[in-house]
Amino acid sequence: MAVPLLQLQDHLTQLEIAPTLGASLANWQVRATGQPLLRPADQAALATGSPRRLGCYPLVPWSNRIAEGGIAGPEGWLALPPNTDHDPYPIHGSAWQQPWQVEHHSQRRARLSLHSQVPFAYRATLDVQLHEGCLSLDLHVTHLDARPMWHGVGFHPYFPRYTDTQLQVAAHRVWVGDEGQLPSRLADIPAPWRFDEQKGLPPQTVDHAFSGWAGGCIIQQPGYALHCHASGAEHYLLFCPQGQPFFCFEPVSHPINAHHLPGRPGLRLMHREETLHLRFSMRYQSNC
Rank of each mutant, 00 (worst) to 15 (best):
L59Q: 03
L59C: 07
L59N: 01
S63E: 11
S63L: 07
N64H: 12
I66K: 00
A67T: 00
E68H: 13
G69V: 01
G70Q: 10
G70H: 02
A72T: 10
P74R: 03
E75V: 02
G76D: 11
G76V: 14
W77T: 06
W77Q: 13
W77H: 14
W77V: 13
L78I: 12
L78Q: 15
L78Y: 05
A79C: 09
A79I: 07
A79P: 11
L80H: 09
L80V: 07
P82Q: 11
P82F: 06
T84Q: 15
D85C: 10
H86D: 14
P88K: 04
P88N: 03
P90E: 06
H92L: 14
G93N: 10
W96E: 07
W96S: 11
W96T: 04
Q97K: 03
Q98E: 14
V102M: 12
E103G: 15
E103D: 15
S106T: 15
S106R: 00
Q107W: 00
R109T: 14
R109Q: 14
A110N: 05
R111S: 04
L112N: 00
L112D: 03
S113P: 02
S113W: 01
L114M: 03
L114W: 03
L114P: 00
H115Y: 08
H115F: 08
H115E: 11
S116W: 05
S116K: 04
S116M: 03
V118L: 12
P119L: 10
P119E: 13
P119M: 05
F120H: 00
A121F: 02
Y122L: 04
Y122F: 13
R123Q: 15
R123C: 08
R123H: 15
A124D: 05
A124E: 08
A124N: 04
T125D: 10
L126Q: 09
D127C: 05
Q129M: 10
L130H: 08
H131V: 12
G133P: 03
L135Q: 02
S136N: 07
S136T: 15
L137V: 13
D138W: 06
L139W: 06
H140N: 14
V141H: 07
L144T: 02
L144E: 12
L144F: 06
L144P: 02
A146W: 06
A146F: 08
A146E: 13
R147H: 13
M149C: 11
M149G: 08
M149W: 13
W150Y: 15
H151N: 12
H151C: 12
V153Y: 01
G154K: 06
G154E: 02
Y158I: 00
P160S: 08
R161Y: 10
T163L: 13
T163K: 11
T163Q: 12
D164Q: 14
D164A: 02
D164F: 09
T165D: 05
T165Q: 01
Q166P: 05
Q166H: 04
L167V: 09
V169H: 02
A170T: 13
A171I: 10
H172W: 04
H172L: 12
R173D: 14
R173Y: 12
W175P: 01
W175V: 09
V176I: 11
D178S: 15
D178P: 11
